[in-house]
Nucleic acid binder design. Structure first.
Lengths: 156, 156
DNA sequence: GTCCTAGTGTTGACGCGTCAACTCGCTCGG
DNA sequence: CCGAGCGAGTTGACGCGTCAACACTAGGAC
């Protein structure tokens, strides 16, 4: 497996084409969110996760777990979003420890419109461009890759 | 807003799964390059592009064009890579040409090993996991998406 | 009690990426 | 000649993301 022999030209090209397509897809999705809602993809992820949270506030660790992000990344992101007024850290832990993360009213408003915009863009730039066979192929491949890299028995 | 009707649950899930898979793929590719060659994906792209360049040095604009990057991004990247000793900006002042970009010996060495490592990882994390039908589907989709977003007859 | 360790969250340094503003040298119109 | 404008390249500010290091609390072990 460490054969590391080089790829055939058409394999390189296939890889490049796929990566290029994905980059464009992500770029358009990001720009749509930014342009229409004024939020970034990272902010979107946090907002949606908090919005779907059962209780009113989450802990940083839960957020990190749920997003599959590192805690430090969550913390940095929360700092930025707190400055923008989307979330607030409630100092509600035992002994003055900051623990709870909650959406502000502004955050709740943002997430509502963002989900609509995002859904539309997923349709426009992704779902609508796929034939059923391509959908099946990409779905199967995605699951297989996830299983391969991160063997986690989340079988559906 | 546009049509913006929300997505069906299985559409959301399809999107999430695909994005998750792609994130894992990119992460593994990046880590492999970083671990085995000590270079980042961005550095890899620049190194390979310079290595494949016809002459001995390129201009920033050509590099940007070739990589499909913004010039400022190229410039920032070159600054970092110059500090690391992979490339050099040759003051080429006469005739309106300002700076040529060339690989150093270290850069040439790095690109050689990086391409092998990268090729192996593309195989391991991408090509080997695809059935021929999936390959065909992803290839077709990629080209269609590129055409959709960036209507440019890039025949590669 | 003190020390050790584990868990949780934060911070700093740094690379990556975008956008806007800037410099520099050239060319062209007056 | 002068300056407006253009194209090439750079820089700065800022957000995103990772890694390593740093609190701080809690729970034992002794």
């Amino acid at each position: 497996m460490v054969g590391s022999r080089s790829l055939e030209p058409e394999e390189w090209e296939f890889w490049d084409t796929y990566m290029h397509a994905h980059r464009l897809l992500v770029r358009e999705m990001d720009r749509g969110l930014q342009r229409d809602c004024g939020i970034s993809k990272a902010e979107y992820s946090v907002l949606v996760t908090l919005w779907r949270a059962p209780g009113d506030d989450m802990r940083v660790g839960e957020l990190a777990e749920s997003l599959n992000w590192e805690k430090s990344r969550v913390s940095h992101q929360l700092t930025r979003m707190e400055n923008r007024g989307f979330v607030e850290r409630t100092p509600h832990g035992a002994g003055g420890r900051r623990a709870g993360i909650g959406l502000t009213a502004k955050g709740r408003g943002a997430v509502r419109s963002a989900m609509l915009v995002h859904a539309g863009n997923i349709r426009r730039y992704f779902l609508d461009l796929l034939t059923p066979e391509q959908t099946a192929a990409i779905g199967a491949w995605s699951e297989q890759l996830i299983d391969h890299v991160e063997p986690r028995p989340t079988e559906t």
